[in-house]
Each structure stands twice: as C-alpha cells, then as structure tokens.
Amino acid sequence: MKLAKARRAVGLGFAHAGLIVMSAFSLFPVLWVVSMALNPHSTAQPTSLEILPRHVSLAAFAAVIAHPTEVDGLTFGRLLANSLLVSGGTALLSVLLGATAAFAFSRFKFRGRKAGLMTFMLLQLFPSVCSLAPLFVLLSALHLRTTLVGLAIAYAAGTLPFAIWNLKGYFDTVSAELEEAALIDGCSYFTAFWRIILPLSAPAVAVTTLFGFMAGWTEIILAWTFLENPKTFTLSMALYGMVGQYGTTKPWSDFAAMAILLSLPVVIVMLILQRYIVAGLTAGGVKG
C-alpha cells in the first residue's frame, strides 16, 4: 500500500513538472509583452530580458493612444471607430443572415437542403486568400473596395458558414413545442422565429455575434490589401504599422502596448465563452 502511495506521489511530481514547463512556454511571450508595455525602455528596442517589469508606468499606453501612427490627423479615436464599424458590421451581417438560414436548415425540409449545408461547409475549407484576386477586382468595380462597408461584407463571407452551422446546431436542440403552439395560435413563421426561437437561442446568438465581431477586429490581410485612405484604417492596421519594415521608428514598447489594447477584449471574450466556441467549432467542422 505504501509503495502504491509513493509511486502515485512520484507520478504527480512528474505531472507537475510537465505542466510547469508547458505553462512557462505558454506564459513567456505574454509576460514579455506585458513587461515591455509596462516598463518602456529608454532605447527603442529592449537590450535585456525582463519578464517581470522593474518599474511600472503607463507611458507606452499613453503614447500609442496619443500618437498611434505616423499619419497626421489619424487619431486613436478614429482607428477605434473604424474597427468598431467593421467588426460591428461583420457581426450584424453574419448573425442576421446566419440566423434566418440556420432556421431554414433546422426546421424545414426542402430540395437542396443537404447540398446547401454541404456547400456552406465546403466553402469554409477554402482560404480567403484564394478569393482575394477576384474579390479585389470585383469590389473595385463596385467602388466598394476601399470602403469599410465593402470590407465588412467581405469578412461576412468568411464568418457566415460558422454562423450558420453554430446556430443550426443550437436551434436543433431548442424544443419545437412553444413554436408549434404559437403557429397553431395563428402566428406566422417569421414571428415564431423572431419572438420564440431567437430569444431561446440567446447563448448561441451571442457566441455567433462575438465571433463575427472578433473576426473583423483582428483581420489584417484584406484590410491591408483593400483600404487606401488612412481615414478608413483600423486598429489592427495601426499595430502592423508598428513592426518590421514599417515600424523602424516606433519603440517596441509601443508595439507591446498596442498589442495589449487590441488583444485584451478578445482574450477576455474567448476565455469567458471558451466552451461554447470550442463546441461550435467542432460541431460544424469549420474554421475559426
């Protein structure tokens, strides 16, 4: 008995060792960024490694909010408003279009139902970069390419399949009794959908909305390729302006502060909704 206990203790010891190593791997980049943001160096780049900052100041945050880019007159407020507009537009489009389509897939039988579901799943497999060239040419022709509305529409194309699969999965679990009763009482299908199904599916609707929002919030490639007027630039584009060939003049602490401002809302939402998001992703078999 004693031997078994000792073996168990040794096993737990190894488990702790493994978990500590991997936790350190996980936390290292995060702590590095936080430390750089909180303790701006006198030099542009850090010359020593500090994982726990020796001094704490919010100067870097103040700097990026006061002066986020090299472009004159492009304020943090403007970047934030643009990001909110694109992300909000993406979220709204994907949840509204996604919910009605998911309702149809969940509650009706019709010709092309299976084919439609498969199409939405397959479309997800193909990377958005692949439709970049035709989208670029088409949106240019429609004079939408350099606008935030055009960008939100392009993003919605990417988020819609997840929206449909995630919402359909949830609608399938909502009991039909209430809506049947409403239909017998003479209520229209649309009212049943709007007044009964949607409110009952609040968690899935919330996850879908936030997912669309986050997709728009952190996207960079389409924004960087399509937008031309600095007045329409987004926060994630400003962050890109702070690294590599574009950011030689910006200190790394600015990059760190901006990275935190951009990521923090996403990190909080993802951690709170982790269960729902993972379930939605694996159920639909679609990308994130």
Binding site: L97, T100, A101, A104, F105, F108, R113, G116, L160
Partner: peptide, 16 residues
Amino acid sequence: TERLAYAFLAPAAIVM
C-alpha cells in the same frame, strides 16, 4: 413550407 424555407434562406444565399 418549401417556399418559406427558401425565403428564410434567401438573404444568406444572395450575399453568399
């Protein structure tokens, strides 16, 4: 109902 289903699908289908 089949027509109704298509009506619900239409917005997403048009945008896609």
